[in-house]
Simulated assay, not measured.
Amino acid sequence: MEIKILGTGCSNCKKLEANTKEAVKELNVDAQIIKVEDIRDIMKYGVMRTPAIVINEKVKMFGKVCTVDEIKKYISDEK
């Protein structure tokens, strides 16, 4: 599973990345977490507000910091 955190490095982006790592750990899934910071790459996903989370190339959420439980649901939906 590939999970991308889209964001330019703001505190909300870092919090989403931390929550994502925690969700992956709690679910014990094999996932690669990639940080995408280049605005051009972020815009390729149609995301205009960060942070955003993309799982298996599907945008799951943007514009807010997801909780660990929300991320776990997104991951479970993609299994």
Score class of each variant (00 low, 15 high):
E2L: 08
E2A: 06
I3E: 00
K4M: 09
K4G: 02
I5C: 03
I5V: 13
L6N: 09
G7T: 07
G7C: 10
T8Q: 05
T8M: 11
T8L: 12
G9C: 02
S11G: 01
N12T: 14
N12R: 14
N12G: 01
C13R: 01
C13D: 07
K15A: 11
L16H: 06
L16P: 01
L16F: 06
E17T: 09
N19H: 11
T20K: 10
E22D: 03
V24K: 06
V24S: 02
K25D: 11
E26M: 11
L27F: 08
N28W: 06
N28L: 05
N28D: 14
N28S: 15
N28T: 04
V29R: 08
D30N: 14
D30C: 02
A31Q: 06
Q32P: 00
Q32F: 05
Q32T: 11
I33E: 03
I34R: 09
I34G: 04
V36H: 08
D38Y: 09
D38Q: 12
I39H: 03
D41Y: 05
D41W: 01
D41M: 12
M43K: 15
K44A: 13
K44S: 13
K44G: 03
K44P: 01
V47M: 01
M48R: 09
T50S: 08
T50I: 15
T50V: 15
T50R: 10
T50G: 02
P51L: 05
P51C: 12
I53M: 10
I53L: 13
V54A: 02
V54M: 05
V54E: 02
V54D: 00
I55P: 02
E57S: 14
E57Q: 15
V59F: 07
V59Q: 05
K60C: 14
M61S: 15
M61K: 13
M61N: 13
F62H: 14
F62I: 02
G63R: 12
K64C: 02
K64Q: 07
K64A: 12
K64P: 04
K64Y: 09
K64V: 10
V65L: 07
V65Q: 08
V65E: 07
T67C: 10
V68I: 15
V68P: 07
D69G: 12
E70A: 10
E70V: 06
E70S: 01
E70F: 07
I71K: 01
K72A: 06
K73L: 07
K73S: 07
Y74H: 12
Y74V: 06
I75D: 00
S76A: 12
S76T: 14
S76D: 07
E78G: 07
K79W: 04
K79P: 01
